[in-house]
Design a binder for these strands. Structure first.
Lengths: 346, 346
DNA sequence: CATTGTAGAGTGAACGTTCACATGGTGTCA
DNA sequence: TGACACCATGTGAACGTTCACTCTACAATG
């Protein structure tokens, strides 16, 4: 009766040991399912655990084992369905392997998200996945170098030392989109980009620009940027369309902005897809309910999430930090009504 | 040089102490911004921290202080935008008060979510918010009793010992919806419920049933249930409408299912709102882009999130467990085209 | 019978931190 | 000059675990 449970209701391994009249270590063995415990003892310990509602303290355990069996997942906007897919995928993969995923939203006001990442590390995670990051390559590289754990960045193609990058092949995606539009008879393609995530946007923009030049000969397509929300997308799209009345197709950074574009078209009396085609990226479920349903670039979020998890796990097992590997995923074009009739594709 | 950093790159308070030639405690004081440190020493320590990229180990700290400054937020579906709002709100509130929010998705296959909650506790969180929970009141009560930390349940009106409940006033919401429909001339109201979250659904259903009876005299309105996804909502809505051809209004459990209902109406050649009105709950942004834009019940997610956070914090400060308090929030009706013209409201 | 092996259980130390207290030095005031 | 206060800093213990040992009892072996 010498112990004083400062936090009532939370019992420790010693409480259980006393209750079952064994040592800490024996309780520890029972919890870990260690074979060298007499069946009768095991039963007594299990009863004590049940009786005291004992839950092992993961922090104390992590302190001595130097492994928390926990990964961190940091995203800029938890409400973005696109990230949600990947997050769910990672969570599933983690669970399957006995890991726990701690999800957090990056506070971009706190040093561009770095503050949140630092806090994530202090939590003792064994690895970190970031999707996407607003930080530039150099900052990320330095973060990874001093983090003391493997780091994976999703959604950005750039090759960064100490980091595994997992991204969609933007060149292939742009090719799919532009080829589809041109085959559908569109000639003057406008681009609606995202004013956030400069690193991600840059890759996507450059890829689109190249594909457009390749397919239509136009060197710098009309472009406008806005916040990745429906209303802001609508506003930006209206500007784009008013500045460039000859546009007959808009490629938007994501489905959200594409839906804003649909509204903007309505505002200006343009009919989709007859007067103008609209394409988005991500393949969020709402795209199917848009008016008209949205043609979009789909990526295998679950596959990418799995790969992200396995990359972290592999680095941990090997004990070697990532070395700037880039895993590229092939996109698919999901053709719906916003770009007219489906065109035959190989 | 006696220390061996088993995890290279992660340095401890002792490394910093040696580097700055002071004791652990002095480093600790600098980190905690304690006033009693000589300016010159403080500087030296800060340099050492910077140089070694030292990050205090939150787990070790929590072990001795018995406070992790961390709350857990558990949700059934992270992709549900409605939960996302609340989650973001809690995260903001947490940050403001120096707390960190660990977000996790409940694995309903693992003992109905209880497994995930247990793991959350082993992480050492100081409090838990659940939104929503699939667990029944009794299980929740027992969980809270043995958790050793305050527990808040969001989105359910039930009064549970040891728990603070934060919920929307379902009776008021149902009244708003039904009154609006009836004022718009609708007479035969169907209900589309969610086959998940039985506890939440029950409250909402009963409230709607009462309001419908009160306003139209119909005792048990036609009802169908489905999964809270667009496609499943569409299917269930179609069944509802085919079984009850005289329905002139559908109240759906949430906006997602309401959007499914819009599609079902399209399938059956019904025009919204002329032939049939549709109402949802939650006020997700996509509702505004639906065709037609969706009338919906809006709740103050941020306010509820703040309240949830403050409830946890207060319990912690007072050291008293929650005692079955229920905080009720007033809903608002956001009238859009899916129910016809806006009717004047007080 | 002495030796060896082994199953079952226990013990001290360590993980990285903070708390409560101790220490030594400097300044102030009677 | 002594008494005291106070400032800057250091030390041992503790938080709840697990690891690497050690210990005891008993069975098997020669």
């Amino acid at each position: 009766m010498t112990r004083r449970p400062k936090v009532p209701g939370r019992s420790t391994i010693i409480d259980v040991a006393e209750e079952a009249d064994v040592s800490r270590q024996t309780v520890s063995r029972v919890v870990a399912n260690h074979p060298r415990v007499a069946p009768e003892t095991r039963l007594r310990v299990k009863d004590a655990i049940e009786k005291l509602a004992y839950r092992p303290n993961r922090m104390a355990r992590a302190l001595v084992t130097r492994m928390s069996l926990t990964f961190g997942f940091a995203t800029v906007d938890m409400q973005d369905l696109h990230f949600g897919d990947t997050c769910a995928g990672m969570q599933a993969a983690a669970r399957e392997h006995g890991y726990y995923l701690v999800v957090t939203e990056l506070d971009t006001n706190d040093n561009g998200g770095m503050g949140t990442l630092e806090t994530l590390l202090t939590l003792g995670v064994d690895g970190v996945a970031i999707f996407p990051s607003l930080l530039d390559d150099k900052t990320l590289e330095q973060f990874a170098a001093t983090s003391g754990c493997p780091v994976v960045v999703i959604g950005r193609e750039s090759k960064i030392p100490n980091i595994v990058s997992i991204a969609m092949d933007e060149t292939a995606a742009a090719e799919l989109v532009v080829d589809h539009l041109v085959e559908g008879g569109k000639k003057r393609i406008g681009v609606l980009m995202n004013e956030m995530f400069p690193e991600v946007v840059h890759g996507r923009y450059v890829a689109l620009q190249r594909a457009i030049e390749h397919h239509t000969g136009v060197e710098s397509p009309p472009v406008e940027a806005g916040h990745p929300k429906i209303d802001e997308g609508r506003t930006a799209a209206r500007v784009l369309l008013e500045k460039n009345p000859d546009i007959d197709a808009v490629v938007a950074f994501n489905d959200i902005m594409a839906m804003g574009t649909l509204l903007a078209c309505g505002d200006l009396g343009l009919r989709v897809p007859r007067d103008i085609a609209v394409v988005g990226y991500d393949g969020i479920p709402f795209g199917a309910v848009a008016n008209p349903p949205l043609t979009t670039i789909v990526q295998d979020s679950i596959g990418m999430a799995d790969a992200a998890f396995m990359a972290l796990l592999t680095c941990l097992k090997d004990g070697s930090p990532p070395d700037g590997e880039v895993l590229l995923w092939q996109p698919e074009l999901l053709v719906r009504a916003s770009t007219g009739l489906a065109s035959p594709r190989t």
